Simulated scan of single mutants.
Amino acid sequence: MFRILLTGCLAALFFSSTFVLNRAMSLDGGHWVWSASLRYFWMLLLLAGWLAVSGRARLGIETLKLFRKHWIFWTVAGSVGFGVFYALITFSSVFTPGWVVAATWQLTILATPFVLLGFGRRVPLRAILLTLVIFAGVLLINVEQAATADLSSTLWGALPVLVAAFAYPFGNQLVWEARKGEKTWLPAIDHPAMDDSICRVLLLTLGSLPLWGVLIAVVSPPPPSTGQLVQTGIVAVCSGVVATSLFLYARHQAANTAELAAADCTQSMEVVFSLLGEALLLGHVIPGMLGWIGIGLTMLGLILYVKVQATG
């Protein structure tokens, strides 16, 4: 359990770059569609390049074959778990500071038990009730944000993240269930690529590409700037490759529902890291009293939730 928590927290540190840099690109006039889609185009190049230079080109080829064999599954899992999730997170950064998006994103901890229940996995009732503490913290943070900004911007910043909070664990749980091979309505995928975090990220990235193509065609955003190209590249390395690989590694080390929930809960640390990052890089004002209480409740909910899950 300790290794899972430590790896998850390290992933949260790298994940926080997403919220800080997405907000920075938005303030610089970069379109959210490019902030979202370019990250995954970068990731595709980085992941393929890493497999090649690390001497695992053959595994990369086998991964592509695995994608082709189960392309419908990977398109669904990638479009929901990577595409819908990240498109909505990036869209929200247009309307609200990155640390607020990161805090609202902790609703994924509230969403995860319901996703697990939807897949027929057991989740202690006490754990579900404790997620309400986290929800209260997120609510306070957004109430404070609404007091400093208009209600419309607050809602546009919060509601898409709520949907993303369900999309991300749902997409990841699809992969976990396919690896376990216990659901008759999902393909049972027993393949070396499923044991490699880089390959799993590559498969989900490939699956998200159709969604990005549709978004670019429908929205028709203006061309990205050089700065946006560079910053999405940084996000791709820090969050898309390093953080996602660490998080999926932690999640796939889980042997039961309690450890799965513990891995997912480590994402709460993104709030702290994002807040520090925005304060240092963008010079944003620190939260007021209500915001700090909200952050405190969120972290308290995390600790209690993990404790309950660990003790069953």
Rank of each mutant, 00 (worst) to 15 (best):
S93I: 04
R58C: 05
L59Y: 01
R58E: 05
H70R: 06
L66I: 10
K65Y: 01
G60V: 00
G78T: 07
G81R: 01
G81M: 01
S92E: 04
K65M: 01
S93N: 15
A57N: 05
R58A: 12
L59F: 03
L64K: 00
A77E: 14
S92M: 15
G60R: 00
F91L: 15
V84I: 10
S93L: 03
G78Y: 09
T63L: 04
F67W: 11
R68E: 10
W71L: 06
G83W: 11
G83N: 04
I89Q: 14
L59H: 02
L88H: 05
S93K: 09
T75M: 11
V84C: 08
I72Q: 10
L88G: 11
T75Q: 01
R68D: 07
K69M: 03
T63A: 07
W74S: 13
Y86K: 09
L66C: 11
G83H: 07
E62V: 02
F67L: 04
I89R: 10
G83D: 10
T75G: 11
V80S: 03
T75L: 14
F91K: 10
V80T: 01
F73D: 12
K69S: 08
G78L: 14
A87F: 13
F82T: 06
F85V: 01
F73A: 04
T75D: 09
W74L: 01
I72V: 15
G60M: 00
I89E: 14
F67A: 00
V94R: 15
G81P: 02
H70D: 13
T90F: 07
V84L: 06
G78D: 11
E62T: 10
F85H: 15
F73C: 14
V80G: 06
Y86E: 14
R68K: 13
K69Y: 03
W74N: 14
A77R: 00
K65P: 01
V84W: 09
L64A: 08
L66G: 08
I89L: 12
I89H: 10
I61P: 00
V80M: 00
T90H: 12
V80I: 15
V94C: 08
S92W: 06
G78M: 12
S79E: 10
L66P: 05
F82K: 09
F73G: 09
A77Q: 12
L88Y: 05
H70G: 03
S93Y: 11
W71F: 14
T90N: 15
W71E: 09
E62L: 00
I72N: 09
S93V: 13
W71V: 06
L66R: 08
F82E: 04
H70M: 02
W74T: 05
G81I: 02
R68V: 13
V84S: 08
T75Y: 06
L88A: 14
V76M: 05
K65H: 14
A57Q: 02
K69Q: 15
W71C: 12
G83R: 05
I72S: 12
Y86R: 09
R58V: 12
F73Y: 05
R68A: 15
R68C: 13
V76T: 12
T75K: 06
L59W: 00
V80C: 13
G60C: 04
T63D: 07
L59P: 01
A57M: 02
T75I: 09
L64R: 06
L88T: 14
G60L: 00
F91A: 09
A87H: 10
K69I: 02
V76I: 15
F85C: 01
A87P: 07
L59D: 03
F91Q: 06
T63E: 08
F73S: 05
L88P: 08
